[in-house]
């Protein structure tokens, strides 16, 4: 199949998915969710007040035009105003993106590099006690609640030892580290477990391929095979999984941000959840879904570009 045709077809498939996402959001928040007018006004609202608020929010319009609004917002990013803060949601997102990314990007890069290094290392010693112990430690790390890490880390390292700020954010360079370092460390710990496990299986899948046997029969050393032949092939699924994780960075770490008082997108989302702020929740959902859809297309296209075997199918 022609590669350009594939890319175009893959991009065209974004549209039904996006419409579907909007449909789910519409169904959840505009059709079955409790009436927002009731939430905003409380239990003692009169029928007239409810009608007024419904009109103000545009809830009296036909369902189809409400759905269209959500679809439109996924292209224009015009999400309207927050119910609780009355701010433009686009501005809230713009302001929140930077603090979120100052935590997410370093954490993501450190976790990814660390995981790849560890998984290559244990794959080299596969089957040994070291390998088994590493897998066990990864599973154990994953078995604790992320809340437990956050609570313990904040209490012990920030509160008791005073190594880091307990909570807050200051967007100037040297100070920022004491605010951001601990959330980054916790993020890395949370991420390394699943990543190492996954990358290790990816590498081990390659170890039993024919080309590895060929390389070995040519007399190449294990190191050359692992780092030259296997790594090259294993990088395809690894890079795929890295790219597909990127959209999730946009939402930030919901819990980390709220515990450490980082004014990012995760914190905004959490506040919106607590105050039933539907437009903000909808906006965040649309935003992250759009990011996810775009990045999954990028991954698919990259996959076909990198791996000629897939193009043949």
């Amino acid at each position: 199949m022609n590669i350009y045709f594939y890319i175009i077809r893959r991009m065209a498939y974004m549209i039904p998915i996006l419409l579907g996402v909007c449909l789910v959001i519409f169904f959840l928040f505009n059709v079955v969710a409790p009436d927002p007018a009731m939430i905003m006004l409380g239990k003692h609202a009169t029928a007239k007040q409810i009608l007024e608020v419904r009109k103000e929010l545009g809830l009296d319009r036909p369902w189809f035009s409400q759905y269209l609004d959500i679809v439109k917002s996924s292209f224009t990013f015009d999400f309207g105003r927050s119910w609780s803060t009355k701010q433009e949601i686009v501005d809230m997102i713009k302001n929140g993106a930077i603090p979120s990314l100052t935590v997410a990007i370093p954490a993501f890069i450190i976790a990814t590099i660390l995981s790849i290094v560890i998984s290559m290392f244990v794959a080299f010693y596969r089957g040994s006690l070291l390998d088994k112990m590493t897998v066990f430690v990864c599973v154990a790390l994953m078995s604790l609640s992320s809340l437990a890490y956050i609570l313990f880390g904040q209490w012990f390292f920030a509160f008791k030892l005073g190594w880091f700020e307990i909570s807050g954010y200051e967007p100037v360079f040297p100070q920022i580290i004491s605010y951001v370092a601990l959330p980054v460390i916790i993020w890395v710990i949370l991420e390394v477990g699943p990543d190492v496990r996954f990358y290790r299986t990816v590498v081990l899948d390659e170890v039993y391929q024919d080309y590895v046997r060929t390389a070995r029969s040519k007399g190449l050393s294990e190191k050359v095979i692992l780092f030259k032949h296997i790594l090259k092939n294993a990088m395809i699924p690894i890079i795929t999984s890295i790219i597909i994780q990127i959209p999730f960075l946009i939402l930030g770490a919901l819990l980390l941000e709220s515990f450490f008082g980082i004014p990012g997108l995760g914190g905004i989302t959490l506040n919106a959840i607590n105050s039933s702020d539907f437009p903000v929740i909808k906006a965040m959902t649309v935003l992250s879904a759009v990011a996810f859809i775009i990045f999954s297309v990028i991954t698919d296209v990259m996959y076909t570009l990198v791996d000629p075997r897939i193009r043949l199918k």
């Binding site: 579907g20 996402v21 919901l254 959902t285 859809i293």
Partner: peptide, 9 residues
């Protein structure tokens, strides 16, 4: 569609 929406949302 369902998997495009973050699970937590």
């Amino acid at each position: 569609t369902v998997s495009s929406i973050p699970g937590i949302m």
